[in-house]
Design a protein around this nucleic acid. Structure first.
Length: 544
RNA sequence: GGCCUGUUGGUGAAAUGGUUAACACAUCGCCCUCUCAAGGCGACAUUCACGGGUUCAAAUCCCGUACAGGUCACCA
């Protein structure tokens, strides 16, 4: 068969492959520079899994001084959703991804949206047909279904291959007449593989793997003229000069097939890094984190909660290489950029997405921040997600900063804030509008008289901390409490309680909770009127 | 079912043939401090899914079993 003639018959008005090879020349790269890409489908919002999938190539490209590219894989037009592309770009920007080339920020290798590259795929398909490595197939869906059920009955391997590949042996004349009849066709790879032979493949993450060769005549071009993933990625990644392909490890099993496409073009094969999915534990089973089933998979979950972008990025970094965490503890002044990530340190199985861990990372992150910055960012956060609290934040700058500064600028700061919405939770008792009732269990020793006595006869805002505390101790014996915790511990029968219980009464009365930052500092944030008000409230609460 | 990949404590995870199996989170206990936290110290895998084998030496290599995940589309 004259394959050249066949190619012209199938693709009469299509550019030569040389045209595109020239139009998109190899990049001028420095030694070691890597070009990586994130290639999502525009099927909705970005979730944690895709954020991680984007994080990996961004890190590995930029840490070599290379480029990070966003390419949109929208060849399946059935799955497309409105604003899909815009949402992806917005989410990536929010998460501080630096995208060197994308549909918005065009580079030399545009277009970056696959449906806009249709002519390119056609050209490459024509080329591969002209080389005799691909052929048109006119089988209908029914015929393929039939083939499959026969294969199932006979317990044969499923697929279009070998003797099942009917259209493989069509003559030029047969093809020509079908085309003249207007029959629809797809282009299939004419596989040269042998299922009984093995190929060895080296993956950057998973290491050496062995597979049977591909012998299935997979589809390279669908009847709508658009390629499925496999063919598109080879054409695009070659033309865009991608040096390392990162993708989800669900593609592992199609490696032999993808390799055969590269080989058919005689293009050098880039490195591949197959990334295990983020997983979630549900009962005893572990499954892929799902954007449909898991609310915590959506990035909006974190922005609504107010988990800072940088904290999420730190978590992604520890998910990438778990030794990052230790390194970062030892090098608190460095950033993600300073760490050398390695593919072979990535998890081969799957990384469990652990919300507790993220929250912990976020707490540590907050504990290192300046109070002024937290205030500023809380203002931004509340302006979007909590309008009511926004007004309070805006009008109480000094108070909030003073609060945030309690036990902050010390070697081991407090870790009670994990997200911007916690600021409200942690400070609500400072504001009359938010503190409307006590929601804490009454304990027998709670006593409004002690409270009133303390504030009328002992408390003075201007006291130093030492004096402040000695005054509380002074008050203790009057009500049968031990001034020293040690004394109480030694002979508890002699006392009603200790100074810590007195502190608890004051703390609970003022804040409605047993755990707050340093009580001395907290009290300073209350005005006299507020104190009086709380004493009254506390009294009512106890008598109720 | 075929093919591929995993399986280390309550959890995540490190150790890529060689001392008592890192570290972090969680939990519990003790200590410290002028209150709450934080912090310090300690406990938490006589053992790396199970069974064999190779080796002076195995969580690490090989074989088998079990379990789990992935894949077998004109989806990516």
């Amino acid at each position: 068969m004259d394959y050249k003639k066949l190619a012209d018959l199938l693709f009469p008005n299509v550019e030569n492959i040389e045209y595109y090879l020239k139009k998109y020349p190899k990049r001028e790269k420095k030694e070691g520079e890597e070009i990586l890409r994130f290639a999502p489908s525009p099927t909705g919002f970005i979730h944690m899994g895709s954020l991680f999938a984007a994080f990996v190539p961004e890190i590995f490209s930029h840490q070599t001084g290379g480029k990070f590219i966003l390419r949109i894989e929208d060849t399946d037009q059935k799955r497309e959703i409105e604003n899909g592309i815009e949402n992806i770009i917005r989410d990536l920007k929010n998460y501080k991804f630096i995208i060197d080339e994308s549909p918005m920020n065009k580079g030399k290798y545009a277009p970056y949206i696959q449906t806009q590259r249709k002519d390119i795929y056609l050209s490459f398909a024509k080329y591969i047909v002209s080389k005799g490595r691909a052929y048109p197939c006119f089988c209908s869906e029914e015929e393929i279904q039939n083939m499959r059920s026969i294969q199932q009955q006979k317990k044969d391997r499923i697929g279009y291959y070998g003797q099942y590949a009917k259209c493989r042996n069509l003559t030029y004349e047969e093809i020509e007449s079908k085309i003249n009849n207007g029959e629809k066709f797809v282009i299939r790879l004419k596989s040269q593989g042998d299922f009984n032979k093995k190929i060895i493949f080296n993956d950057l993450v998973k290491g050496k793997m062995e597979f049977p060769e591909n012998d299935i005549d997979h589809i390279l071009l669908k009847s709508d003229g658009l390629p499925p993933y496999a063919f598109a990625h080879v054409v695009d990644d070659h033309l865009m000069d991608i040096t390392t392909i990162t993708r989800a490890d669900e593609y592992v099993s199609s490696i032999p097939y993808h390799l055969e496409i590269w080989q058919a073009f005689e293009f050098p094969v880039p490195r591949y890094a197959h990334i295990a999915p983020l997983t979630k534990k549900e009962g005893t089973t572990i499954r892929k984190l799902s954007k449909r089933k898991d609310p915590e998979a959506a990035v909006s979950y974190y922005s609504e909660l107010g988990i800072p972008v940088d904290a999420v990025r730190l978590y992604l970094a520890t998910l990438l290489n778990s030794d990052f965490e230790m390194w970062y503890m030892q090098n608190p002044d460095k950033t993600i950029k300073d760490f050398e990530f390695k593919f072979n340190k990535m998890s081969v199985g799957g990384s469990l997405f652990d919300l507790d861990k993220l929250i912990n990372i976020s707490k540590v992150y907050f504990s290192k921040k300046k109070a002024e910055d937290i205030y500023k960012e809380t203002l931004e956060y509340t302006s979007e997600y909590d309008k009511d609290f926004y007004e309070i934040v805006k009008n109480n700058k000094d108070k909030l900063i003073s609060f945030l500064n309690i036990e902050r600028n010390i070697p081991r700061p407090r870790k009670d804030i994990s997200c911007y919405s916690d600021v409200k939770k942690e400070t609500s008792y400072l504001f009359k509008e938010l503190f409307t009732e006590y929601q804490i269990e009454k304990k027998p020793f709670y006593d409004a008289n002690i409270l009133e006595d303390y504030f009328t006869n002992y408390y003075n805002v201007n006291d130093t901390k030492e004096i402040w505390f000695s005054k509380i101790k002074e008050l203790c014996p009057k009500y049968g409490y031990a001034s020293e915790t040690k004394d109480y511990k030694q002979s508890p029968e002699k006392y009603k309680g200790s100074v810590s219980d007195i502190c608890e009464i004051i703390r609970v009365a003022m804040t409605g909770r047993t755990m707050t930052p340093d009580l001395y500092e907290i009290l300073k944030l209350f005005t006299n009127d507020q104190i009086k008000d709380r004493i009254k409230m506390f009294n009512e609460y106890l008598t109720k």
